[in-house]
Design a protein around this nucleic acid. Sequence first.
DNA 1: CATGAATGAGAGTTCATTCAT
DNA 2: GATGAATGAACTCTCATTCAT
Lengths: 215, 215, 215, 215
Amino acid sequence: MGIQERKEREKERRRQQIMVAAKRVFSDRGFNRATMEDIAKEAELSPGTLYLYFKNKEELYASLSLRILQYLHIRVGHVRDEEGPPEKKLETLIEAMYDVYAFDPLILINMFHLQSSETLKNLSPELLEQIEDLSRKSIGAISSIFKEGIEKGVFIDRHPVALADIFWALFSGVVLWNTSKRIIDIRKDYLMQTLQAAFEVFGRGVTRNVALPAE
Amino acid sequence: MGIQERKEREKERRRQQIMVAAKRVFSDRGFNRATMEDIAKEAELSPGTLYLYFKNKEELYASLSLRILQYLHIRVGHVRDEEGPPEKKLETLIEAMYDVYAFDPLILINMFHLQSSETLKNLSPELLEQIEDLSRKSIGAISSIFKEGIEKGVFIDRHPVALADIFWALFSGVVLWNTSKRIIDIRKDYLMQTLQAAFEVFGRGVTRNVALPAE
Amino acid sequence: MGIQERKEREKERRRQQIMVAAKRVFSDRGFNRATMEDIAKEAELSPGTLYLYFKNKEELYASLSLRILQYLHIRVGHVRDEEGPPEKKLETLIEAMYDVYAFDPLILINMFHLQSSETLKNLSPELLEQIEDLSRKSIGAISSIFKEGIEKGVFIDRHPVALADIFWALFSGVVLWNTSKRIIDIRKDYLMQTLQAAFEVFGRGVTRNVALPAE
Amino acid sequence: MGIQERKEREKERRRQQIMVAAKRVFSDRGFNRATMEDIAKEAELSPGTLYLYFKNKEELYASLSLRILQYLHIRVGHVRDEEGPPEKKLETLIEAMYDVYAFDPLILINMFHLQSSETLKNLSPELLEQIEDLSRKSIGAISSIFKEGIEKGVFIDRHPVALADIFWALFSGVVLWNTSKRIIDIRKDYLMQTLQAAFEVFGRGVTRNVALPAE
DNA sequence: CATGAATGAGAGTTCATTCAT
DNA sequence: GATGAATGAACTCTCATTCAT
C-alpha cells in the first residue's frame, strides 16, 4: 500500500509538473502557437510522456482550468456557508474573486478563453462533465448568496441565477477586456482599479437599499 | 467612370460574399478548425481568390470584427451627441448595445474572442491600427457620456474611462458567458433577460441618486 | 502592307518591352522568386498580356538568352571570316567575348544558368532548336578558328571542337565563379582581371610556339 | 555510451539515407521540380522525417554540396602539403580534380549550380558559412600551390588567387558545359577528353618554361 | 514508465495560367 | 489585342500523436 501511495503521489507530481510547464507555454504563446514539444521541453520530459498523463493537447489545456475552478468552487462554497448578513457575504465573495484572480491570473484568463471557445466543444465527455459540474456548482453557490439576500430584502428581486451570471460575467468581462487593452497598450494596467470600481457599481446596483451610503 | 464604379461595387460585393461565408464557417467551426478551403467552398470561390481580398486567414477573421466595430462607433457617437439628460443617454446607450448585438451576434462573439486572444498580436499593423482606433474612439465616446453624467451629478464620481470599461466589459462578459452556458446546455438561452438585468444593475449602480426608484 | 509592317514592328516592340522587364526582374530575384506578375508590373502590362507574346515563364526566360546567342553567333562568325593569322584571330575572339559580356552581363549569366539547368529540358522544341542551333553554330565558328590555327601549325594539335569547348567553358566558368564569389563577398569584383589572365593562360596554353614571348 | 554511440551512428545513417535519395531526385528533376514528397518516397520515409534532419528544402540541397566540398578541401590540402616540384603538384592537383568529379558527379554538378544561383542567398547563415569556409580554404590551398610555383619561377607571375580561380573556373566550366551539351545531344560524352585537354592547355599556359616539351 | 524518432494528414499559401469581358 | 480577376493544383512545412525500444 505504501508503495501504491507513493506511486500515486509521484504520478500526481508528474501531472503537476506538466501542468506548470503547460501553463507557462500556453500563456506565452497562446493555445495554437504552443506545441506539445514546447511544453515537453519546458517540463523537461519527452512529448510521448505528456500523453501518458493527458489524452491530448486540448485536455491538457482544459485541465489547467480545472484547478482554478476547484479553487473557485471551494471559495464560493465557503462564502455561501459562512455566517453573516448578505451584504457582508457579497463583500467576502468579491474578496474571493480577487483571490481567484491572484491564485493564477494566467490560468484564469486561459479559462475565460476556454469558456467561450470552440475548444470546449471538443473535450472528452468526462472532462467536459467535470468542468460543467464545477461551473454549475460555483454559479449555484453564488446564486444561493444572492437568493438569501433577496429573501432578506437586501438585494433587488431578480432571478438569483441571473445575478450570479451577471456577477461572474462582470468579473470575467473586466479581466478579459483589461487583457485586451494591455495587448494594445502594454504599459498601463488598471485591472485592480477597474475591478474595484466594477464591484462597487455592482454592489450598489444589486443592493435594494433606500439609504445608500454616500459614495 | 461608370465602369470604374461598377468594378468597385463588384469588388466590394466579392468581399462581402467572402465575409458572409467566412462568418458562417468561423461560427460553425471556430477559428482553428475552419479552413480557408471550407470558406472558399462556402463562398463558392477558389481558395486563391480569398487571398485576392484578404492577406491571410487571420486578417479575414479580424475583418469581420471591423464592420461591427464601425457600427458600434457610429452608434455610441450618436448617443454621445444627442440631446438629453445623462440618464436618458445611458438608456439610449443600452439600446445601442442591443442593436449592436442584433447587428450580427455571431460576428460580435467573434470579435470578443478576437479581443482577448493571441490572434490580435499577429494582425497586420494597418488592420490592428484600425481596430485599435475604432475601439479607442468608441470607448472614448462612452466615457464622454459618463463624464457628462458625473459632472451633472447624476453618476457616481469614478473615472469615466473606468465606467466605460466596466460597461463594455459587462456587455461582452454577459454575451460570452451566455455563449459558454449555451455550449453546455444548448436548449436555454437567457441572454436577453440576463442582459436586461445586467444593465439594470449597472444603471442602478452607477446612478448617484439619493432617491432610487423603488425597484 | 504598310499596316502589316507597322503591326509587326509594334508587336516586336512589345516583345522587347517585356523582355527588358523580365531581364530586370529575373536578375533581381532569380528565376524561381520572380513571378509573372512582377514582370507584368515592371513592364506596365497585365499578366495576361505576357502570354500573348511568350508561351510560358520558361520560354520568356529562355528568350532572353536568344538575343545574346544571336549576338555571339554574329561576332564569332565575323572573327572566323576575317583575314589574318590565327594568333590575331584568337585575340579578336577574346575581344568578342568581352563584348558579349558587355552586351548584357545579366542576361549572359542568365544564359549560363540556363545552359546547365533543368529548365533547358522543358522548353518548347522550337525554342530549344533555336538555342541549339545558335550554340552549335557559334561553337562551330570557334572551332573553325582553332582548326585553321592547328592546320597552320600555330595551335596545338587537339580536336578543334574540344578547344572551342574549353574556350567557351573557361569564359563561362570564370564569369559564373566570379558571380558566386561576389554573392559571398559583394565588395570585390575582379572579373576583368581574372578574365584577362584566363585568356592569357589559355592563349599561352593553346599556342604551339617554341619561342613563347617572355611573359 | 554504447547506446549513445549507436544512436549517433543511426542518426548519421538516416541523414545519409536522405541525402542519397535527395541526390537522386534532385539530379533527376532539378531543384524546382523535385518535391520533398518525391524525396521522402525515394528515401522510404515520410515527408515530416526529412525536416527532422534538414531545416528545409534548400538546406537539404545545399547539404549535398558540403560533403564534396569537404572532400575537395582535404584533397587540395594534401596536394599543397606534399613534397615535390610545382609541376608535379599541378599534376597531382589535376588528378585530385578527376577524383573530385568521380567522388560524386551528380552532386558536383549540383554544387556548381548552387554556386551560381539564387539559392545561395537563402541558406541559413551557418550553412552558408560552412560552404564559404570550405570554398575559401580550398581556393586558398590551390593558390598556395601556384604561389610556390611562381616563387620558384615555374609558373607565370600572375596573382596566385587569380590562377586558382581560373583553374577552378575551368574545371567547373568544362563540367557544366559538358552537361549542357549532353542535355542537347545525350549520346556523346566527351567529358574526360575535354577535361584532359583543358588541363593540358592550362598547364601549358601557366608554365613559364622557355623550352616547352614538344606537344 | 519514459522516450523521442517517425509519422502523415492536413494546413495555409502561392502563382503560372486562363478566359470572359 | 489587352485586361486582370479568378482559378486550383501544387507546394512546403508543421505538429499532434503513436509506438517500438
